[in-house]
Simulated assay, not measured.
Amino acid sequence: MNVKAWLSAFRLRTLPLALASIGMGSFLAATRGAFSWAIFSFCALTTILLQILSNLANDYGDTVNGADSVERKGPARMVQSGQITLGSMRKALVLFVALSLASGICLLYLSFGFQVQAFLFFFVLGILAIFAALAYTAGRKPYGYMGLGDLSVLIFFGLIGVMGSYYLYTQQVDLYLVLPALSCGFFSVAVLNVNNIRDIESDKKAGKYSIPVRIGRGKAIVYHWVLLISGVSAALLFTYFQYSSWTQLLFLVTVPLFIINGKAVKNKVEPHTLDPYLKQMALSTLLFVLLFGAGNLMS
């Protein structure tokens, strides 16, 4: 087995972004005195497994559908380059579906025990998350090729990721949490947008109609700034409504990082020069969550 190839296919650099939304939900639950290490551990494990599943499905689907070709300018994909066979990747997809389900069921039991309605509701959400991971670029009609990836990321990395994880701890709904959930969602979409701007030419040839392919690079840059500004604005609005201490503004330390990312997306014309800013945006989002959460805990 080519361990290096599989680790590359896992795309470990995307995992900080996957942890951002459940980190936000966990911090917010902790401010209500409802944090649990057991729930956090299985929440993190389930999220990581789903993210790896999504990455493997993306490697598989983009190769089958032609988006990952020799003309693509980003990092090499393992199926397209021949380092992992289609058959091996299909087996890995089945394995990670099973692991995600097993981890998710353990998480729901820890959270709800024998509360059947809550258990079933979140189980269905888990099935939808698995479907979303697989259907983004794999299958007969991958929704990522229709330009719906941004909406999916906003929902699963934002609203469901934050509010769902918060509910696992508290079994309560707080409508104000829509705001930090949207912050995580907007920043996560920004990561996807950097990726899609980088791949705009190869995606266009493959018939993958991402948002940048549909609206062009110039408008995609404007769209990127809208995402960044909206993410910060949603956090500021939440702080305004829930203000109790200056520490709640600690997340503003990350604003220069988002400005750096926005400028890079505008100025870096060659696709390969944008690649480092995928990681930079993901890590900036995670730092935003850590500072936002810590600031609210200290308030």
Rank of each mutant, 00 (worst) to 15 (best):
A5C: 08
A5M: 13
R11T: 01
L12F: 11
L15W: 12
L15S: 06
S21L: 02
F27Y: 14
L28W: 12
A30L: 15
I39M: 08
I39Q: 07
F42R: 09
A44C: 08
L45Y: 11
T47H: 07
I48N: 08
I48C: 09
N55D: 10
N55P: 10
L56K: 09
N58Q: 09
D62T: 01
V64N: 03
V64P: 08
G66P: 05
A67F: 02
D68C: 05
E71Y: 03
R72Q: 00
R77P: 01
Q83F: 13
S88M: 15
R90P: 08
R90N: 12
L93R: 01
A98R: 13
G104W: 04
L107F: 00
L108Q: 11
S111A: 15
F112M: 06
F114G: 05
F114Y: 14
L120Y: 11
F121P: 10
L125I: 13
G126P: 12
I127C: 15
F131Y: 14
A132Y: 13
A132R: 12
L134A: 00
Y136W: 03
T137I: 00
R140F: 04
Y143Q: 02
G147R: 14
G149S: 01
V153F: 09
V153N: 07
L154R: 05
F157T: 04
L159R: 07
I160V: 15
Y167M: 09
Y167G: 07
Y169C: 00
T170W: 06
Q171A: 13
V173W: 06
D174L: 10
D174H: 12
L175M: 09
V178Y: 02
A181Y: 00
L182Y: 05
S183G: 11
C184A: 14
C184K: 03
G185E: 08
F187G: 05
S188C: 14
V189T: 13
A190T: 05
A190Y: 11
V191K: 06
N195T: 01
I200L: 08
D203V: 03
K204G: 09
K204M: 08
A206P: 00
G207A: 09
K208A: 00
K208P: 01
Y209T: 06
Y209I: 12
S210G: 11
I215R: 04
G216T: 02
G216W: 05
K219F: 11
A220V: 08
V222F: 12
H224C: 10
V226P: 05
L227P: 12
I229E: 01
S230H: 06
G231C: 02
A234L: 14
L237M: 15
F238N: 01
T239V: 15
Y240D: 10
Y240H: 14
F241A: 05
Q242V: 13
Q242Y: 13
W246V: 13
L250H: 12
L250V: 11
F251G: 04
L252E: 05
V253Y: 12
V255Q: 04
V255E: 04
V255D: 02
L257Q: 12
F258S: 04
I260N: 08
I260A: 09
N261D: 13
K263H: 12
K263F: 09
A264E: 06
V265A: 03
K266R: 15
K266S: 14
E270M: 00
Y277E: 02
L278A: 03
Q280L: 12
S284V: 07
S284L: 04
L286R: 00
F288G: 01
V289S: 08
L290V: 15
G293L: 14
A294C: 12
M298A: 13
S299K: 13
S299A: 15
S299N: 13
